[in-house]
Structure formats: structure tokens, C-alpha cells
Design a protein around this nucleic acid. Structure first.
Length: 159
DNA sequence: TTAGGTAGTCTCG
DNA sequence: CGAGACTACCTAA
């Protein structure tokens, strides 16, 4: 999130360093870090489990996470994130499709995706716009959007 | 291509 | 609380 976030681990991955927040073995938050912040990674015991599963996913996308998650958010956001986790590997949904499933609106779904605290594990990258790629990690272009593309290509490659 | 509609959240006051 | 302003959108014209 910002400089005040204290990460239990920083994991290097093909999409750059990932900052991980874990408490009591429960995963709360994953952040994409800039390549400069990769220095001190205090790799603790609870982080090892998360790190291992993430590395596994980056090696082979056909892998489904089994981690205790605690993404904090409103009830609507929880509903959206729940929907995201039901999108099968290698498939995508549009914001509108998710919205209809929840009797809501596309923009509201976009908002919830933007606030997803656990990207990659909760597959917000599998949600695209009706005509376009949509956004990722708060950006509608730039590095984060290319990460989205990388993840989708990675998953397609392992089908 | 745009104009208007939409739902959830945030920020003021 | 209420009004207004934000969005990783969608559809019709």
C-alpha cells in the first residue's frame, strides 16, 4: 500500500516483487511493489506457506490456492470477490456479467475489483471489459495492466 | 463515437 | 445524514 505497510515477506516473482501481509497465518494483503523496494525481505515462518503456493502458481498456473484468506471489505465487495474466485482457470468474465449475477451494476463491480486486496489469489485479472482489457491494480494502462496480461497469458499457457 | 444510465463508495458540510 | 463527485462499465443511437 504505502511506506507504512509492514510486510512479513517480500517475494520475488516473474511479475516483480510482491509484498505480503500475514497475521496468525491468515493472508490479508498482497501488493505489487516497485522493483527498487525489493531489498529486505523478512521471510518468516507463516510467510513460507504463502510464498510456496505463490511460487507454485507462477511455475504452473494450474494450481488452486488453499490459504486462509481474510480480505477486508464491505459486504458487496465480499460478494464480488466471491464471484471472482468461481471463475475457472483460463476463462474470463466481463464486469457486466459479474454485475448481473449480483443484481448490481458494472461500474460497481469495477470498484470492488479495484479494491481487491489479494490480487493473483483472488483472480481479479480474469475480469475484463466488454470491449477492452479493463484495468488492474488501479490502473487502466501501464505496468499493472501488463501484469494482468501476463497473468492471463500464463494461465492460457497451462491449459 | 458519444451521451446517458447505472451502482457503490468517498468526501465534504 | 445528504448532496455531489468520483470510477478497472455498458448500451443505444
Amino acid at each position: 500500500m504505502n511506506a507504512t505497510t509492514s510486510y512479513q515477506a517480500i517475494i520475488t516473482s516473474p511479475i516483480g516483487p510482491l509484498g505480503i501481509v500475514i497475521e496468525e497465518g491468515v493472508l490479508y494483503r498482497i501488493n505489487f511493489l516497485s522493483d527498487e523496494t525489493t531489498l529486505q525481505a523478512a521471510e518468516g515462518k507463516p510467510a513460507a506457506q504463502v510464498a510456496a503456493q505463490l511460487q507454485h502458481y507462477f511455475k504452473q498456473a494450474d494450481w488452486h490456492f488453499s490459504l486462509p484468506l481474510q480480505p477486508m471489505g464491505t459486504t458487496f465487495q465480499q460478494q464480488v470477490w466471491q464471484q471472482l474466485r468461481q471463475i475457472p482457470l483460463g476463462e474470463v468474465r466481463t464486469y457486466g456479467e459479474i454485475a448481473r449475477a449480483l443484481n448490481s451494476g458494472p461500474r460497481a463491480v469495477g470498484n470492488a475489483c479495484r479494491n481487491n486486496p489479494l490480487p493473483v489469489v483472488v483472480p481479479c485479472h480474469r475480469v475484463v471489459a466488454a470491449n477492452g482489457p479493463g484495468g488492474f491494480a488501479g490502473q487502466t494502462q501501464g505496468r499493472n495492466l501488463s501484469i494482468k496480461g501476463w497473468l492471463l497469458a500464463h494461465e492460457r499457457a497451462t491449459l
